[in-house]
Structures are given as structure tokens and as C-alpha cells.
């Protein structure tokens, strides 16, 4: 499957909706994520800086309901973008928490405090979609 194609977008939606494998981390951590996700309604636009394309993920009531690839992040609540190198490193297993801490994925638009209130839910979603096999 090719990265940033409609097929990949649908796989990404399914992956973040299922969440990552819950192994190796404390149950209380996943409880935190479940609480952050409960009722979560927002749209994330995750972009590749070089191409200007975004993966638009729409969360409705804690479910990832829609995904599409677009060059117009439009009304997304949180618009983020990273360079191709960062996206490649993520697919090769880079720690998504480290990617956030080093601000390799920049918040181009959106409220910083509201975005961070669910930060580990976001980090684990990033982990889940990074693990999709791509060619």
C-alpha cells in the first residue's frame, strides 16, 4: 500500500480507531487514553510539508468516522505538519512521543492547550497509523 493514498487513508482510519497493540504499557495508561478518547469530537489534519497534502481524520464521539487525503485542511480543528524525513522515521519505528517533544510535527493551526489535553491519545494514534505497512 502506498503512503498518502486514499487506500492508506482508510487503513489509517481503521488503525487509529482500533488503537495500537496494548502491550508493554501499564493498564492505567490505557485507562487514561480511554478517558481522553471518550466522546472525543475533533478533526485532525496531518500533513506532509513537502507535498502540502494532509490526512484528514474526523473523530466523532470517540470514533474515527472518516478519513481522506486533501490539499486543503479547511476547517480542521488541529492542523499539523511534518517533513517527509519525520514521516519516514515514524514508519521506521521512531518514538512518536519523542517526535512530539522535539516538535518535529508542528501545530500549524489550532489551540495548543486543547490539543495537549489529549496528548497521549494523539501520540498513540500516531503510533498506530505509523505501523501500517507501506511500500
Amino acid at each position: 500500500m502506498r503512503f498518502f493514498t486514499p487506500e492508506w487513508a482508510e487503513a489509517a482510519r481503521a488503525a487509529v480507531d482500533a488503537g495500537p497493540e496494548r502491550e508493554g504499557k501499564l493498564p492505567t495508561y490505557w485507562n487514561w487514553i480511554d478517558r481522553a478518547r471518550a466522546g472525543y469530537t475533533a478533526t485532525w489534519a496531518l500533513g506532509v510539508r513537502e507535498t502540502g497534502e494532509y490526512l484528514l481524520l474526523t473523530w466523532k464521539d470517540g470514533k474515527c468516522a472518516e478519513a481522506e487525503i486533501t490539499s486543503d485542511p479547511g476547517a480542521a480543528d488541529y492542523v499539523l505538519a511534518a517533513g517527509e524525513t519525520t514521516w519516514r522515521e515514524l514508519r521506521e519505528g521512531a518514538d512518536p512521543g519523542r517526535v512530539v517533544m522535539y516538535r518535529q510535527l508542528r501545530l500549524e493551526r489550532g489551540d495548543v492547550l486543547a490539543f495537549f489535553r489529549v496528548i497521549y491519545f494523539f501520540v498513540e494514534s500516531l503510533a498506530a497509523l505509523s505501523r501500517i505497512r507501506t511500500t
Partner: peptide
Amino acid sequence: SFEHVSETFVGPFGLLAYQADE
């Protein structure tokens, strides 16, 4: 040493990084 850094730090340090960008 990054693998030893816990969420207690990753979250607030990340928040600071994004606030600095803002």
C-alpha cells in the same frame, strides 16, 4: 537516554515546545 524518559516529562516538555512555537 530517551527511552528512560517517562510521560511525566514528555507531556510538559512537548507542551512547552508547542507553546514556544506559538
